[in-house]
């Protein structure tokens, strides 16, 4: 950048074409127009480039990333909710099945008990019936037997009397009376 000449001894301000004056360089006003012009050109260009190209691009990148992260988070929470719902419905189904199984078991037990009860009652009733019939027939037989006891006794009496006394056996009426008197 540097030229070979030394600057300090030069007097007066030279408009252009080499070293600019003897003043302290930043305060040398002859260089101001050029600096201002080129600053305006370069900074203006830089501003345009920043506002039209670079900043929208970086802003877009950051926005995309934010959206992507937010989307991923939303997706994750959606999936989490879904899995939680699945777990809840599974547990519900399990509880339902359990309740159903318990109900069925109870019903089966109840039905079995009811049918066995019914069978038992029926058998008991039949048995009682048979018992009653048997008792009745026994009674009948007994009464029949009792009724014949007098006749047999009277005949026996007739035969005994005939054998003992000889002759004519007493009449049946007499024997009956005698038997009846004894059996009283």
């Amino acid at each position: 950048m540097s030229s070979t000449s030394s600057e300090h001894q030069s007097t007066g301000t030279v408009a252009h074409g080499g070293e600019a004056g003897g003043a302290f360089p930043p305060f040398d006003s002859t260089t101001y127009p050029s600096q201002l012009l080129w600053l305006a050109i370069t900074f203006g260009l830089f501003y345009l480039l920043m506002s039209k190209v670079v900043l929208p691009r970086i802003g877009g990148i950051l926005e995309d990333r934010r959206d992507r992260i937010a989307g991923d988070m939303a997706e994750a929470s959606r999936l989490k909710q879904e899995s939680e719902a699945a777990v809840a419905s599974y547990e519900q189904a399990l509880a339902d099945a359990r309740a159903q199984a318990g109900k069925m078991a109870r019903e089966a037990a109840d039905a079995a008990k009811a049918s066995s009860d019914a069978a038992r009652t029926k058998a008991e009733a039949e048995l009682a019936d048979k018992l009653a019939k048997a008792e009745e027939s026994i009674d009948k037989i007994k009464q029949g037997a009792l009724a014949q006891v007098g006749d047999i006794a009277a005949q026996t009496t007739q035969e005994l009397v005939k054998a003992a006394i000889g002759g004519e056996a007493p009449s049946k009426d007499v024997a009956d009376k005698a038997v009846a008197a004894v059996m009283k």
Binding site: M1, H16, Q35
Partner: peptide, 22 residues
Amino acid sequence: FHINNFIDLDIAGIDFSFTNAS
């Protein structure tokens, strides 16, 4: 801090040269 002209540019008597600062 010296400013040296690289390309002289003179518009209406004012020095707008392309310098090392430019």
